[in-house]
Amino acid sequence: MILTPKIVARIAALGFAGVLLQLSFFSQVELLHVSPDLLPALVVCLGLLGGSLTGAVSGFSIGLFVDCLLVESLGISSLVLMGTGYLAGLFRERADFHGSLVPALLCMGLTLLAELGYAAIQLLLGVDAPVSTLIVRDMLLKSAYAFFLGWPTYLVVRRVLRPALVDVPRVQRQRQPTVLGA
């Protein structure tokens, strides 16, 4: 990815819109008693298209912004989303898998990993209440929702960052050949 100030602004706008959409919409709706989480999917798509560094920095910034808006302890979401973005970028740089299902599957897997990471950090920091086994259902459903959110998110992110992507061929209109004498 070629990072110019314009592209950085586009990534920031994507992050801002994603956070607003998460806090005002996805966190407040429930399907089967679980709210979808868009942010890991968004960070995965940024990492997948921009590489590990872009993924890590975007994840860190988006996490920091969420924690600021919710007035919560800074650093937890940043750490989790930074790791998620970095792993997605590493996948792009190291693995040689291409296919239409890759972004959705990666969103699903890394959302589950992000949920596990968040749980591990919370448990390490200390939790003052008993933890229900329903938390496992919450994690699994969130990663399942990420599968469905992953594909549209990937398309939107790719469309917004298209000018910076070096490996996406520019779609050119081909002129129909003129048949002489027609």
Partner: peptide
């Protein structure tokens, strides 16, 4: 107007 995205918070 907003809600925490995680069940931990």
């Amino acid at each position: 107007i907003a809600r925490s995205p995680t069940v931990w918070r």
